[in-house]
Write a protein that binds this DNA or RNA. Structure first.
Lengths: 115, 115
DNA sequence: CCAACGTATGAACAGGTGTTCATACGATAG
DNA sequence: CTATCGTATGAACACCTGTTCATACGTTGG
């Protein structure tokens, strides 16, 4: 009957363009390596080299992913000397991840299964 | 120096297995069609046919996606007559989406650009 | 200025994934 | 019971994307 018309969030209706943006953000967090990269700089800013060492990936790969994360405004970059430190762009990123962690760690209703 | 060791969420350290689960959940929401499917049943349970009509996709495709969303515990299914109604599995899903909407609708700091 | 470190970039490959088509299943109505 | 509706399933295709390799850029130290 109606379109999307719900989401008692800031804006009640969600434009198609916004949906595409949302999907892009979720897709970026949907890759294991990229999610680990974000997680590894959540608490404190980290350089590309540090992140690469922590997540066990090549600096090249980390740089590629950071480029995407930066373009999507999920992280921000800051020069310190000849290293560049990355950190989450704002508080929402951490909130999103924490909510998802809550979803994962929620007790599985064994009576319901997956039905 | 250290591993992941932060995330002042329920559990401070995030096991590798959990990270993979998180990535899977984000990846599922990272597809435009699937995200629209979730959005279309956020306010009230919706049947496969209704969802297909709302998001403009074939019932077959919607069914495929709902199977994945159900397996990941993002939605739940409930039979009513010969139709099956789907709705979000719990409150966290809605919280995650709302947080991400907040991130998208946040004012862009034009002074910072993407740096 | 030149060497070295850290980071960024581009192309190419392999693998995964969304979509479609055709078909099968299950449940209700007559 | 048979026919029909709604939903689910499997295979095949095309496309996208993550990763690697090689290389280039920019910045610091001697």
């Amino acid at each position: 009957m109606a379109e999307i018309e719900h989401l008692e969030a800031p804006e009640r209706r969600l434009a198609e363009e916004r949906v595409a943006e949302l999907a892009d953000l979720f897709r970026l967090l949907g890759d294991g390596t990229r999610l680990r990269i974000v997680l590894s700089c959540l608490a404190a800013p980290a350089s590309v080299g540090d992140i690469a060492a922590r997540v066990g990936a090549s600096p090249s790969l980390v740089s590629h992913h950071l480029r995407l994360l930066r373009a999507a405004r999920l992280v921000r970059a800051e020069r310190r000397g000849r290293q560049i430190f990355y950190s989450p762009r704002d508080q929402h990123v951490q909130c999103v991840i924490e909510d998802m962690v809550a979803h994962v760690t929620e007790p599985r209703d064994e009576l319901e299964g997956d039905a």
